[in-house]
Simulated scan of single mutants.
Amino acid sequence: MTDFATPEQIAHRTNAAKEAAVAAGRDLGLEITEGKVLYELFSVVVHLAPAPVVARIPTVLPHTTTPDDLTRRQQQELDVAQWLHDQGTPVIPPSPLVPRRPVRRDGFSITFWPFTEEDKGSEPDYVRNSELTADLHKALRDYPGELDFLSSAEPRFVTEGLDRLEPDVVDPADVRRAKKEWQVLEPLISDESEFRKAFPGVDVQPIHGDSPPANIFASTNGPLFSDFELITKGPVEWDLGGLGPELEAAYDRGAARNA
């Protein structure tokens, strides 16, 4: 059975990521007296104080993600965020104080973003965020950069993950059913041509890849799209999965406004 990280291991990993970000930032010429961890879950987010720069360091990744894969995705994220910013879309863009590229340091791959003040008095408004997601999709339609098709689905990780399930974790009958259903789904999300054959009336375009309504940052200057780590190409419906009728209706209102 897979072992889970202990609190001590997580704390060690977080501190190692913070120290790597501080060292990388100093190498890039930033004045840094301390690294302040702002967030830790799948990534560690560190304010490189007093510089107005935040480092984001992915620390929990699928075992199928290689360092080169991660660097490539991070570069795509930086490029998309900068392009959206240049078009006037409200996003958190890459930091202008360092080169727009990922930096590898001590086993981590790090990207740099401007420190952005959070409106801590605001509650998440997922209805509003879902409506705003239609604006993001409209802005992304014209993105000229190269993106993979539904890479955020991680098909290889799913395939290998199903093979790794142990009988004392999941009932073998459920694993067999999941594998049978995955055999139908896997070609459709791994191959754009297969998807288009199965769904000929569905448009494909650049999408956020990771539930944009949950990744809108409430800044003191208003909501900002953020966290394009899973930027990909696919149907806009991919970004809406699991939202439910109320939030889907909010998205539809935004889409109708942009029609």
Rank of each mutant, 00 (worst) to 15 (best):
M1R: 08
A5W: 15
P7T: 02
Q9F: 00
I10S: 08
T14F: 02
E19Y: 08
E19H: 05
A24N: 05
R26H: 11
L28E: 13
L30R: 11
G35T: 02
K36I: 10
V44D: 06
A49L: 07
P50G: 12
P52N: 13
V53L: 06
H63V: 14
T65C: 01
T66V: 02
T66M: 04
D68Y: 06
R73Y: 12
Q74M: 15
Q74R: 14
L78E: 05
A81C: 08
W83S: 14
W83Q: 09
L84V: 08
G88K: 09
T89Q: 08
V91Q: 13
V98T: 12
R105G: 01
F108H: 10
F112E: 14
F115M: 02
F115G: 01
E118A: 07
E118R: 04
D119I: 00
S122Y: 03
P124N: 03
D125P: 10
N129E: 01
E131Y: 01
T133E: 01
L136A: 03
H137W: 12
H137Y: 05
A139N: 07
L147Q: 06
F149H: 12
F149P: 10
F149I: 14
L150I: 03
P155Q: 11
R156K: 06
V158T: 15
T159Y: 09
E160K: 07
E160Y: 05
R164I: 07
R164A: 09
V169P: 14
V170G: 10
V170K: 14
P172I: 08
A173P: 02
D174N: 08
R177D: 05
R177C: 07
K179C: 02
E181Q: 14
L185H: 09
E186S: 11
I189D: 04
I189Q: 08
D191F: 08
F195Y: 13
K197R: 09
D203N: 05
V204G: 07
Q205V: 00
D210K: 12
P212N: 04
P213Q: 03
A214S: 14
F217W: 13
L224R: 15
D227Y: 07
L230I: 05
T232P: 08
K233L: 07
G234E: 10
P235W: 00
W238L: 00
G241I: 02
G242S: 12
L243F: 01
A259S: 11
